[in-house]
Amino acid sequence: MARIRSIKPEFFTSLTIANLDLPSRLTFIGLWTHCDDEGRCIDDARLIKAAIWPLDDRTAADVEEDLGALSESSLITRYEVAGRRYLAVCGWAEHQRINRATKSKYPSPDQAESPAAPPPASGNESSQAAHGGLSENSVSTHDRKGTGNREQGKEEPPAAAEPPARHDAPAEQLSVTQRSKRITDAYAVAEPMCKWPAINGIVIKAIKAEKWSDDEISAALLRLADEGRTVTVETLRRELAGDPPPVGRAHLRLTGTDGRPTSGPRATGPISEEDIW
């Protein structure tokens, strides 16, 4: 069940958060609403994708990549108890105050079946400032002091996450997901307020069309950004093909030499996405 949480202003100035790509940041925020009142949930990218990214063109593998990045940054702890995988948001109890908190039905990280892996050096900064604290108007007798990153369980590498793509790696050595992420991240530098998942979905379609190189797709996106044009499947296809932008969506009837409308075909507006590539 989704829950209401708050976010601290320090989240936006956290150096640990700044090192994450935008989808990983949003997945981290989404985990706060997905996890229970003790910051725990089942570690299954399919369930997390359904809860946090239900309407976006992202796969469970994409979300697994986000979780891997969050674990490497010590923002979450991934552990296993009795053969089941769980995750916990690091420093949850230390930074969140929840009135009448419901006790978690999941085991804590200190019940993990193997010793905790040593946290990266960036762990303290991330647990202190990265996620928000929830408070309510009524006075709570259940506020708790947490153990922060000391409550670490078994950290396991992501099962399906792909390694980050090197900036100079040839496209033929990368998966479609790695290629689209590299192209979309470059576009996000030019357009920081873009809807990253939507742009990434459009880029994936362009890559799978196998008509253009990654450099051509990236250059077309940057031209759209420079001209202040919205990126859609159609606008990217037109830019890649060198077609001029449509004048308008209206259907224009052709005219004969006498200036009267003919019965012939009409010039159409934007084409459908089914025929776009």
Rank of each mutant, 00 (worst) to 15 (best):
171 A>P: 00
215 D>L: 01
143 D>Q: 02
70 L>D: 14
247 V>S: 13
123 G>T: 09
98 I>K: 00
2 A>S: 11
47 L>T: 09
210 E>Q: 07
46 R>L: 13
5 R>N: 03
262 T>Y: 01
135 S>T: 15
52 I>K: 06
236 L>W: 04
55 L>H: 15
14 S>V: 07
58 R>C: 00
125 E>Q: 10
23 P>Y: 04
161 A>D: 07
109 P>E: 05
90 C>R: 06
210 E>R: 14
253 R>Q: 04
273 E>G: 07
183 I>G: 08
76 I>F: 09
268 T>I: 06
206 A>N: 07
71 S>N: 10
116 A>Q: 06
55 L>K: 12
150 R>T: 11
190 A>L: 13
226 D>V: 06
240 L>I: 13
118 P>C: 03
210 E>V: 05
217 I>P: 03
269 G>E: 02
213 S>V: 03
252 L>E: 08
236 L>S: 14
45 A>W: 03
214 D>K: 01
96 Q>D: 08
130 A>E: 05
158 P>H: 06
30 G>M: 08
17 I>H: 04
136 E>T: 10
211 K>L: 14
187 Y>C: 01
265 P>M: 07
84 R>N: 04
3 R>N: 03
254 L>Y: 04
204 I>L: 05
16 T>K: 01
227 E>M: 11
206 A>W: 09
138 S>L: 07
113 E>P: 00
52 I>G: 01
21 D>I: 06
115 P>F: 15
188 A>C: 03
129 A>R: 13
2 A>V: 15
102 T>F: 02
74 S>Y: 11
129 A>C: 08
188 A>F: 10
66 D>W: 13
241 A>V: 05
251 H>N: 02
8 K>A: 02
139 V>M: 04
63 V>S: 02
65 E>K: 08
263 S>L: 09
193 M>S: 07
187 Y>F: 15
212 W>F: 15
4 I>Y: 13
7 I>R: 03
213 S>F: 12
88 A>P: 00
22 L>D: 08
258 D>S: 03
28 F>E: 03
154 K>G: 12
119 P>Q: 10
68 G>R: 07
28 F>L: 12
128 Q>D: 14
22 L>C: 00
267 A>T: 11
148 G>P: 02
258 D>V: 00
249 R>N: 09
242 G>S: 15
183 I>F: 08
144 R>E: 00
267 A>R: 07
224 L>G: 12
244 P>T: 14
117 A>Q: 14
254 L>S: 02
57 D>Q: 12
171 A>M: 00
65 E>R: 15
131 H>V: 02
34 H>G: 01
130 A>W: 10
46 R>I: 10
205 K>H: 07
237 R>T: 11
186 A>M: 04
182 R>H: 02
216 E>F: 03
230 T>D: 13
153 G>T: 05
72 E>Y: 02
85 R>Y: 10
162 E>R: 07
244 P>A: 15
242 G>F: 10
7 I>L: 14
114 S>E: 06
